[in-house]
Computed example of a mutant assay.
Amino acid sequence: MQYINPQLDIEQLGRAFQRDGRLLIRDFFEPAVVEALSRAVDEIDWALTYRDVNGDRVLSGEQLRSLSAEQRAMLVDGINLVASQEFQFSFCTDSLVAAAKRGESHLLARFMRWMADEEFLASIRRITGVTDINRVYAQATMYTRGNFLVVHDDHVDAENRRLAYVINLTRNWRADWGGLLHFTGPQGDVLESYFPHFNSLSLFRVPQQHFVSYVPPFAQGERTAITGWLIAA
């Protein structure tokens, strides 16, 4: 089965990536593939990932549903307190890596195994010129009201992350609903912004300063994606 749109001009995309170190590619997947991914992501029982004073935390869907209104308010206050002082994020997630390692057969686990194979990796090497990538990390993500990701560069000392990516699966989004990927310069100004067009691939070199803008309470939808890094082992 053909996953990637065969009409993409890989050479032209490569020239643009070499010039800017980042790229937004529209219509990256074949329509049947992205439609199936979108349906599969819509069925996820999302967990919330965030940081507190002791480090990274994950609350399962079941745990989130069990919270009282007072507990939810305290959770939000704690997330915002950390964000006012240091690196913070708050968004929903589901690990494709964990599902694939468990040998699960649902579509997202199979898609993770395809991403780790040569067809996807070879295409990304051709576009970016980054030839040493040989591993992929992937998670499904959802940004809904109150979610955000503050400025960071994706560098982690213990991992050789070479590229970051976002496979956008959101229909009918609006820019004023937040959830946009913004790239910043050394003075803090926004250099470029990527809108989460359905069936687009955002791809950029690591390290690179960026953030995902806050999704306000009036947003009428969820911004869903498959996100992660391409790594040189």
Rank of each mutant, 00 (worst) to 15 (best):
N172I: 03
D77T: 13
L81Y: 11
M74L: 15
P186K: 06
R51Q: 06
F120P: 10
R110C: 13
R223C: 10
Q220M: 04
R223G: 08
R15Q: 13
E43Q: 15
R125D: 05
N5P: 13
V215S: 10
D9E: 12
S213V: 08
F29I: 11
D45W: 02
M74G: 12
N134W: 10
E70W: 06
A138I: 01
G188Y: 06
I25N: 00
L181N: 06
D157S: 05
L59D: 08
S60N: 09
A98K: 05
Q85R: 15
S213Y: 06
S202Q: 10
P6V: 13
S213P: 08
V215Y: 08
W46S: 02
I10L: 15
L149F: 06
W46V: 03
R26A: 09
D56W: 07
N54R: 02
L96M: 09
R162T: 08
V82F: 01
L181W: 02
L149Y: 09
Q12I: 04
R205W: 02
L37T: 11
A225C: 00
D157Y: 03
T144Q: 06
V58Y: 05
A219N: 06
R22F: 15
G146V: 05
V166H: 03
N168I: 02
A40V: 04
R135T: 14
A100E: 11
D153K: 03
L201W: 04
L75Q: 07
I133R: 04
G188C: 02
Q12W: 10
G221C: 12
N134R: 07
R110L: 14
Q209A: 15
A69I: 12
M142T: 01
R26G: 09
L48Y: 02
E62L: 11
V190F: 10
P216M: 03
F89D: 00
I167K: 04
D20M: 07
A158N: 11
L37Q: 09
R26N: 11
L107A: 02
S68R: 10
L37R: 11
S84T: 07
W177T: 03
Y137C: 07
F211W: 04
L75C: 05
R51K: 09
Q187K: 09
R65A: 15
A116V: 00
V130D: 12
T141G: 11
S68M: 12
L75Y: 06
L24C: 08
R126S: 15
R113V: 08
G78T: 05
S200T: 06
G221R: 09
V151I: 13
Q71A: 14
F28Y: 06
A83V: 02
L23Q: 05
L169H: 07
S105A: 14
P216K: 02
L81I: 08
S84D: 09
G55E: 07
I79V: 11
S84Y: 01
R223W: 08
L59E: 03
A233S: 14
D42W: 00
M112G: 08
A158I: 15
R223S: 02
D153Y: 00
N54T: 10
D176T: 01
S90W: 04
I226M: 07
I231R: 15
D27A: 02
D154E: 14
D42C: 15
Y194C: 13
G228Y: 05
V206P: 09
T224A: 05
R125Y: 05
L149E: 04
W114R: 03
V151Y: 03
C92I: 09
V41R: 04
D56T: 08
R161G: 14
Q208F: 09
